[in-house]
């Protein structure tokens, strides 16, 4: 029952993300556009490129969708509205989201096209840059909550949200989450105008629809994870818990979509060197500071 409700909410959230993305890109707020685009995609022919690696080509969009949905499974919207409250929830989100990389490499290699392949391998380089910045801030969050349970992480922020408690971690996690969802300015793997769509280049029709859906679910999952880890999850005055979750998740999604609009795309080499030269030392510093704070104030 809970699972069905959450899956419906996830689909609804993905639709809202599509509306928001359209708004952020074109400046027009139209509620119906994503539905028409989806219908158009489903109606179009799904072209198979010449000499593809058929297994990878077919599996990749589905794997992207599955990994995003699995990551959403451990995210609580209210104290009870969660698919499975795993004892290793905070780690499980990472484990599920790494398969986004596998899906993109498959999607890049499968269609036997140059642009797609470059896009796929670029995402591997991007992973080397952002992976540590996902894991290390989560470590600091877990240290404060003294638990890997996502519900426990939300409860631990009752007095003070983590965005105030560990602002450095929040900034790093937010940037890394944008890189993980390949949103601009980190959209190296799809790079419109440079790689002609990158990993999406050879996909069309139904397969492209599944791919896009997977990415929308990925964006909303990451926004929800940010809310759970740093913005106090369902907590807030006056309104019921589910309303707070919804408001916060949509706000974070909107910021994620808008943040990169006016920035130039970051070059692969720069992304790597900035992440490793500034990001990882900052993340380590964050872990150290949180450790001191936890020891002093507990």
């Amino acid at each position: 029952m809970t699972t069905a409700v959450l899956l419906l909410l996830l689909a609804f959230g993905a639709y809202l993300v599509a509306v928001l993305e359209n708004w952020a890109t074109s400046g027009r707020f139209q509620l119906a556009t994503p539905a028409f685009s989806a219908l158009a995609l489903l109606g179009r022919e799904s072209v198979l490129p010449r000499k593809p690696d058929r297994i990878f080509f077919e599996v990749a969009p589905t794997l992207l969708l599955i990994s995003a949905v699995l990551a959403a499974a451990v995210i609580p919207l209210t104290p009870n509205l969660i698919i499975t409250d795993l004892a290793t929830g905070a780690l499980f989100i990472n484990a599920a989201l790494v398969y986004v990389l596998v899906a993109l490499i498959m999607a890049g290699w499968g269609p036997n096209g140059a642009y797609a392949m470059i896009g796929g391998w670029r995402f591997l380089g991007q992973l080397i840059a952002y992976a540590m910045l996902i894991v290390m801030p989560i470590t600091a969050v877990v240290m404060r909550a003294e638990s890997l349970l996502t519900t426990q992480i939300v409860v631990s922020q009752a007095g003070l949200w983590n965005i105030v408690y560990q602002p450095v971690g929040f900034v790093l996690f937010f940037i890394a989450a944008m890189a993980l969802a390949f949103l601009p300015p980190f959209d190296l793997t799809t790079a419109k105008g440079e790689l002609a769509g990158g990993v999406e280049a050879e996909y069309s029709g139904v397969r492209l629809a599944v791919f896009r859906l997977g990415r929308l679910v990925l964006i909303i999952t990451l926004a929800a994870a940010t809310v759970v880890f740093y913005l106090g999850g369902w907590q807030g005055p006056w309104l019921p818990p589910w309303a707070w979750s919804a408001i916060k998740i949509l706000a974070v999604t909107a910021i994620m979509l808008l943040a990169g609009r006016y920035m130039p795309r970051i070059r692969e080499a720069n992304l790597l060197s900035w992440c490793w030269m500034f990001g990882i030392p900052l993340a380590l510093l964050n872990i150290f500071l949180v450790g001191v704070l936890v020891l002093v104030f507990s």
């Binding site: 790494v98 990389l101 596998v102 992973l127």
Partner: peptide, 8 residues
């Protein structure tokens, strides 16, 4: 989690 990165 670890093997996905390693094998990619």
């Amino acid at each position: 989690m670890m093997m996905a990165t390693e094998m990619s």
